[in-house]
Design a protein around this nucleic acid. Structure first.
Lengths: 183, 183
DNA sequence: ACCTGAACACCGTTCAAGT
DNA sequence: ACCTGAACACCGTTCAAGT
């Protein structure tokens, strides 16, 4: 019987700080433990193992994806673009952690907040109810792919903002077409 | 003066085989060396370091992306779908290696063959010359994002073929719209 | 219940030496 | 030029022990 010296939240905070400052490669059980002035083995009770630590890191990353405070009914285009820009910014700040999103299906699990905002925006655009879920998945697949490409340097040498506007414009037309079909 | 016992090609072959059989985590300098009956240090002359080994692995992965033998002028939709299916198959077979594509910009470097095929298909669809490059990037970003999502399990619980058809259908409409605008 | 300490089986990489 | 051997500074994780 002993009072806990550290919590899962503290472990994840330390992990996230470490990843922000020194990248994913610096995230080791030992380094995280050192930050908390604790033995590596102390972490196992709180996060399971290294895999669990990384899952927690992805959780924290998802929490970084904030929701714009524009009302979706006002301007659905602005809402969607602002969400996409936010996701891209997160990808740029944590490029190596970001790709973990693809491997952990956390994209569907957590971040229900952002998803609801996208739903409202798509509804405001006139996308029929039955197409909402499919469209949201299509959209998020696109945005995450774009953000990962950008953060990984796949668009190196290009004008990325122009690239984004080009793509976003076409996706908006796609959404408009979906709305028009339903009428 | 001594005859070489191994070549870069052999090292990469062993690396690729190892990754296919046991996943990316099993790819260590020591394990690759053991496959070639050689000391770990022998690899350094041929691939530089671990990073260089992984770059070579991505090279090999790109080479797995084959080009359909349908003439693009015949049915551009079939060509694009067949390429997308092939990329998805590669992602499913090597899920953890596949995400490295996002981090190495190899997508733009190598694989010029597939890119040319996409160009021809888009031309056949009627996409104007000036929009070809941008459309191809948009398309590949989409396909790679979809493939990575699928391989990583982000679509778990969904009918993935239906999901693909849904998305592909909308992307085709997007391409048709691009072609129509130019007339 | 929670943490420590020592130990085990791994890593990538250096450096000097051998042929 | 090409490979080896020993060594260094790391890893994640186990297990028994302490409080």
């Amino acid at each position: 019987m002993r009072p806990p010296r550290i919590s899962r939240a503290q472990v994840l905070d330390a992990t996230f700080d470490l990843a922000s400052e020194a990248g994913l490669a610096a995230v080791t059980m030992r380094a995280v433990a050192a930050r908390l002035d604790v033995t590596p083995m102390a972490l196992y009770r709180h996060v399971g193992d290294k895999q669990g630590l990384l899952d927690g890191l992805v959780e924290r990353l998802m929490a970084e994806i904030t929701v714009p405070d524009v009302a979706p009914e006002e301007d659905w285009r602005a809402v969607l673009r602002s969400m996409a820009r936010n996701i891209r910014a997160v990808a740029r700040r944590y490029p190596d952690v970001f790709v973990l999103l693809f491997q952990r299906r956390a994209v569907t699990e957590g971040a229900q907040g952002p998803r609801q905002v996208v739903f409202r925006a798509l509804r405001a655009a006139g996308v029929p109810e039955g197409e909402l879920a499919g469209t949201e998945r299509m959209l998020s697949t696109f945005v995450y792919g774009f953000a990962a490409s950008e953060a990984g340097g796949r668009f190196a040498g290009l004008n990325i903002e122009a690239e984004f506007d080009y793509t976003a414009g076409h996706v908006e037309k796609l959404i408009e077409a979906l709305a028009a079909d339903s009428r």
